[in-house]
Simulated scan of single mutants.
Amino acid sequence: MSNPRPRIVMLVHNNVKGDSRVQKQARSIAALGWDVTLLGVSPAAAASPATSAARRSS
C-alpha cells in the first residue's frame, strides 16, 4: 500500500483569483507533492449584509 499524498487546505478571506501571493504559495506546496485546496470568499459574499452580520456576532 502506497502512502497517500499529504493534503492542505488554504483558507483566505478574499478572492483567491486575484491573490497572487496565495496562488504562488499553493503552487510551491503542490510542487512538493501536496494536494492543495484553496478556499476563498467571493467579492459578492464578502459584501453581503448576512456575512457582515455573522462577522459582527462572532
Rank of each mutant, 00 (worst) to 15 (best):
A54L: 10
A44D: 08
S42V: 03
N15A: 08
L39K: 12
G33Q: 01
A54I: 05
V22N: 06
L39Y: 11
P49Y: 00
S28N: 14
I8W: 09
S57T: 11
V16L: 04
D19F: 15
K17Q: 14
S57Y: 08
T37V: 10
L32K: 10
M10N: 07
A46M: 08
A30S: 02
K24Y: 13
R7F: 06
L11W: 04
K24M: 14
M1I: 09
S57K: 10
V16S: 03
D35H: 06
T51C: 06
R21N: 04
L32G: 12
L39A: 11
A31I: 04
D19A: 12
L39M: 10
W34K: 03
G33Y: 01
M10C: 06
S52L: 14
V16Q: 03
S20C: 12
R5N: 08
L38V: 02
T37L: 10
M10F: 09
V9P: 05
S48W: 01
A50L: 13
A46T: 05
L32A: 15
H13F: 13
K24Q: 15
A44E: 10
A45R: 11
I29C: 04
P6Y: 01
D19C: 15
S28E: 12
D35S: 06
D19G: 08
V22T: 11
R7I: 04
H13A: 12
N14F: 13
D19S: 11
L32S: 12
V16E: 03
A26K: 00
G33R: 01
A46V: 04
R56F: 09
T37P: 03
S42T: 08
A26M: 00
V36M: 00
A30R: 02
K17V: 14
Q25E: 15
N15I: 06
H13R: 13
V9K: 10
S28W: 15
V36K: 00
A47E: 03
V22C: 09
R55Q: 08
